[in-house]
Amino acid sequence: MTFLEVTSFLFDGFKISLLIFAVTLLCGAPLGLPIAFCSMSRFKPLRAVSRIIVWIVRGIPLMLQIFIIYYVPSLVFEWEIWKNLDLAFTTGRELSFAGRVFAVMIAFILNYACYFSEIYRGGIESISKGQYEAGYVLGLNKSQVFRKIVLKQVIQRIVPPMSNEIITLIKDTALANCIMVGEIIYKANILAAEDALIWPLFFSGAFYLLFVGLLTIVLGKIEKKLSYFRS
């Protein structure tokens, strides 16, 4: 196989990595917000449930969570949802892994939403009480104080830790490999097994490296744009 052929073969896999990345970010980031609010709720049972979920999700390896989401429906409830989805999306002779991608995405979204929620909570709790009080004494209500005064300061503070998580996320997508989702590492392994080519496995690192470089530039720009004020 030529270098170009290998690159194009690996890039097909990297598209799946990027898909998992994008869906996790688009769904996980908003989902983190209600979890953060539950974790800060004054209603104790809700706060307890939310914090226990976050503890469990952050306390178990993500790979194990992928296995749980993937195997538990069929093993415990005899519900073959992922296999059926795989079959439903299969057109040619090769079995589609669409169902497994869904399983991975759900595990990733839950996992990252919990991590994001803790970042949001830390950001919200770091804003001084004086900012809220200054809004209240001017006659603003709670929602106005949060949206117009607190939110932007929170965003400024959470951009650096969020950047960290986002960079970790693209590399974590390699875990999808554990249930045979055709992401880039899986593709590289195929080349190693079928064509006895080991170098594509190491070459796959270049894809991550390039993408992380791009992310670093974009996230750095966002951070810079928000640095016009000091809170």
């Binding site: 004086g130 900012q131 200054a134 005064i149 004020f229 000091r230």
Partner: peptide, 10 residues
């Protein structure tokens, strides 16, 4: 008016 101002920094 607060002791430590509490202006909105943004």
């Amino acid at each position: 008016v607060f002791q430590n101002f509490n202006l909105f920094p943004q």
